[in-house]
């Protein structure tokens, strides 16, 4: 459906997008996840043909966005970060203008305008000037423009920013229903949203693609093979010694819990080995009934934080070094990198 190959966007010495490649397949909902300033919007702007690229290739439905922009853009509906609405028009006029611009045939025009406006629930306000509408409604008018004519790919840049909780819920429902027979790409820095709506997640940080996969895959990737146990025993130290004695186990930690139970964690030395049986047998031999055994869970949130912390730490060190050398030159210079990094860390 969409293929992005070695995409690079350079502004002076700054790489907004640094060698990103991925493939978008039909009929799925993709989520671009990343802290503010990660390069999500830039990537989307390039994919939709709004800005040019430094090097690389974007192919939409077999059409290169640079060489055959007309064909490529015809397959895409795009809602940018700020809804591109004209304040001096009413929603109905605006959506009609969008339909004319998209070259929707005259006999289908009225029908598709009606559909888009009903889906986004802007029929009630269709005759008011857009500049008098609230942010939520404006966002919906922008959304109506993007889904108008139901293009094969719908790209949404932070579609829920500035909406109230009820509107966010409605927006997610709408995206989910669109995802049934369209390809939807949305960007967000809100993890729960992406986790909630998307089938496939692409994590971008500092212009680089650092991980991609389904939410489960991402969790598995980070999980490793650590286990959590609960045993019935009085002495945590004895349990610790018993578990450490199991061949292939390492990093054993034990701490007492209520009602004469002990909670323990251990990791296998070899990630692929299965220690469950050995653990069971050891506990049985020691006379400590095993109450619970499960792989330690890791949420997508910690995956995300860990991933951006890894690359973030490197970049931070580099940025600090740069800023120090800059400060020597002139005190006024404000390096960009640490600022975006702090923002990223907060989220």
């Amino acid at each position: 459906m969409i293929e992005v190959r070695n995409l690079v966007k350079q502004y002076g010495d700054h790489y907004a997008v640094d060698d990103i490649s991925f493939t978008i397949e039909k009929g799925r909902i993709y989520g671009f996840l990343g802290p503010n300033g990660a390069g999500k919007t830039t990537t989307m702007n390039i994919m939709t043909g709004y800005i040019g690229l430094t090097s690389g290739q974007v192919i939409v439905n077999g059409h290169d966005i640079q060489e055959e922009p007309y064909e490529a853009k015809s397959c895409i509906g795009y809602l940018p970060e700020h809804p591109p609405v004209y304040g001096d028009m009413t929603p109905l006029e605006y959506v009609t203008f969008a339909a004319e611009l998209k070259n929707i045939p005259a006999d289908e025009r009225e029908e598709s305008i009606k559909k888009a406006m009903e889906l986004t629930k802007i029929v009630d306000v269709q005759d008011r000037l857009i500049k008098n509408l609230s942010k939520g409604y404006r966002q919906r008018v922008g959304f109506a423009q993007a889904i108008l004519g139901f293009p094969e790919v719908i790209i949404l840049d932070e579609p829920t920013v500035g909406l109230d909780p009820r509107q966010i819920h409605e927006m997610r429902e709408l995206i989910r229903s669109l995802g049934k027979d369209h390809t939807v790409i949305l960007s967000s820095h809100i993890l729960s949203e992406v986790q909630d709506v998307c089938d496939h997640i692409i994590i971008i940080h500092k212009g680089k693609l650092i991980a991609q996969g389904t939410p489960e895959e991402l969790e598995n990737q980070m999980r490793g093979a650590a286990m959590e146990l609960t045993l019935k025993a009085d002495d945590p130290e004895k349990v610790g010694a018993m578990l450490s004695a199991i061949p292939g186990a390492k990093n054993v930690t034990c701490h007492p819990a209520k009602n004469g139970e002990v909670m323990a964690e251990l990791e296998p030395e070899d990630k692929n080995s299965d220690l469950r049986e050995a653990v069971f047998n050891a506990c049985a031999a020691a006379g400590c009934p095993l109450l619970m055994m499960k792989p330690s869970s890791i949420s997508l949130e910690s995956v995300f934080l860990e991933l951006i912390a890894d690359t973030g730490a490197e970049a931070q060190v580099k940025a600090e070094a740069e800023s120090e050398s800059q400060e020597e030159k002139d005190g006024d210079a404000q390096p960009e990198a640490p600022e975006t990094d702090e923002k990223g860390g907060d989220e």
Partner: peptide, 14 residues
């Protein structure tokens, strides 16, 4: 200024 050029330039119009 109002970023509406983003609409025009991402639509199939030259």
């Amino acid at each position: 200024k109002t970023k509406t050029d983003q609409m025009l330039l991402t639509y199939p119009v030259s």
